[in-house]
C-alpha cells in the first residue's frame, strides 16, 4: 500500500506541508503555597515550510526552541493548537495510526526497543506490528544488520547495549518497515566520533538507495554539514532561516577572513570599512570583511598598494555563525506570551 509514487501529496508535490502551525502549552506554575499561576508557552509559533520527497533537512535551534515539539506534531502524538499540517497527505494527529505505517521515528533520548528483550525480539514485534511481509522483513533486517553492524548484538538484551549500539538498534527498528520519511530527534546525542560518522554515512546511504525523506534535529552541526542539503533554524518557536547551509553565513551576518602574506612586516594595511585588520603576525595579516561581499575588491585593493605574496580566504565557522545568531535573537524580546 505504501508505493513510492503516492498520489496523496499536496499540490506542489510537497511530502511534508507545515502551514502556520502553532503549539501553545498551558503551563501551571506554583506561586506561593496554594496559588497557581497559569500561563502559556508558545513552543511553536506560526511555522511554515514544506519538504519534498527525498530531501534531507536539518532542523536546528537552541535548547527549548521547539524542535522536538515540531517533530511530535509531525508524528501525530501532539495536536497543533493552530495551523495546518500534512505528511504524505495525512493529517498526523487525526490519523496517527494510518500515518504510523509510513513514518519512522528515532528519538535519541528514548528507545523504541524493549529493554528486557534481546534486540531481535524487538524486531520480531515490529514485524508483526507494522505487518511487514515476511520476505521484505527478512531482506530489510539483513540489510540493516549489515549496514549498521548489528550482527553480534541481535541476541543481547537491549538493557545491556551501550548507548551507541542501542542507537544503531533504534535506527534499524525505525527503518524495518520501509518508511517514506524518517524523523530523527538528536540521533547522534552522546555518540563517539566513530559512531557518529557511521550513523551519518548510513543516513546518506538510506536516502540515496530508497529516497527516504529525512528530517533531523541535532546540536551537532557536523551532522547537518555531512548529511543535509538544507537546514532550517528555529528559535523561540519561529523559523528564522530556511535554505542551504552555505547561505547561513550571510543571514548570520558572519564575516569571512582574508589572510594575506606580504613581503615583509607592515603596519596594519589600510582597507575600507567595514573591512578591518583583526590580527598581525609578522608579514601575515588577517582582514575580516562581511561574508556577503566578494573578496575580489579587497584583494585588488591590497595588491595595488602592498607587495602581496600569497593569500587565502577563510569561511566563517558555521558554528560561530549560528551561536552568534542565537545570541542576537536572545538579546531581542523573547516571543513568549502570557
Amino acid at each position: 500500500m505504501s508505493g513510492r509514487m503516492g498520489t496523496t501529496e499536496g499540490s506542489e508535490g510537497a511530502f511534508i506541508e507545515v502551514d502556520g502551525v502553532e503549539k501553545v502549552f498551558d503551563v501551571r506554575r506554583r506561586k506561593g503555597l496554594l496559588r497557581r499561576e497559569r500561563h502559556q508557552v508558545r513552543a511553536v509559533d506560526s511555522i511554515s515550510f514544506t519538504v519534498a520527497r527525498g530531501e534531507m533537512v536539518g532542523y536546528i535551534g537552541p535548547n527549548g526552541a521547539g524542535k522536538s515539539t515540531t517533530i511530535k506534531m509531525l508524528t501525530g502524538i501532539l495536536t497543533p493548537s493552530g495551523g495546518r499540517l500534512r505528511v504524505a497527505g495525512i493529517d498526523p494527529s487525526r490519523e496517527r495510526t494510518r500515518l504510523a505505517h509510513r513514518i519512522g521515528v528515532v528519538f535519541g533520548q528514548r528507545t523504541t526497543l524493549w529493554w528486557d528483550l534481546p534486540l531481535i525480539d524487538s524486531y520480531k514485534l515490529m514485524h508483526r506490528m507494522y505487518r511487514i511481509p515476511d520476505a521484505r522483513y527478512r531482506e530489510n533486517l539483513a540489510r540493516l544488520v549489515e549496514l549498521l553492524d548489528l550482527g553480534d548484538l541481535l541476541e543481547v538484551p537491549v538493557r545491556q547495549l551501550s548507548l551507541g549500539q542501542r542507537m544503531r538498534g533504534d535506527i534499524a527498528a525505525a527503518l524495518l518497515h520501509d518508511p517514506e520519511v524518517l524523523y530523527l530527534d538528536e540521533p547522534t546525542i552522546g555518540l563517539d566520533v566513530v559512531s557518529k560518522t557511521r550513523v551519518r554515512e548510513f543516513l546518506r546511504q538510506v536516502n540515496a538507495e530508497r529516497a527516504t525523506t529525512v528530517l533531523l534535529t541535532t546540536h551537532d552541526l557536523q551532522d547537518i554539514e555531512q548529511v543535509c542539503s538544507r537546514v532550517m533554524v528555529i528559535d523561540h518557536g519561529r523559523l528564522v532561516y530556511d535554505g542551504a547551509l552555505a547561505g547561513l553565513h550571510e543571514v548570520g551576518e558572519g564575516e569571512r577572513t582574508l589572510v594575506v602574506d606580504l613581503e615583509r612586516e607592515f603596519p596594519p594595511v589600510e582597507v575600507p570599512a567595514p573591512a578591518r585588520v583583526v590580527r598581525v603576525d609578522g608579514p601575515r595579516q588577517w582582514v575580516a570583511f562581511p561574508a556577503s561581499e566578494p573578496a575580489a575588491g579587497l584583494v585588488t585593493r591590497i595588491a595595488e598598494r602592498y607587495p602581496l605574496v600569497d593569500l587565502s580566504v577563510r569561511e566563517p565557522d558555521i558554528e560561530a555563525v549560528i551561536a552568534q545568531m542565537y545570541a542576537e535573537r536572545a538579546g531581542r524580546a523573547p516571543t513568549q506570551s502570557s
Binding site: 511530535k72 508524528t75 501525530g76 502524538i77 496517527r96 495510526t97 494510518r98 504510523a100 505505517h101 513514518i103 521515528v105 528519538f107 528514548r110 528507545t111 523504541t112 506490528m129 507494522y130
Partner: peptide
C-alpha cells in the same frame, strides 16, 4: 510517546 507513534492500538 514511543507507544503512540506506533501503528498499534
Amino acid at each position: 510517546a514511543v507507544d503512540l507513534y506506533r501503528p498499534a492500538d
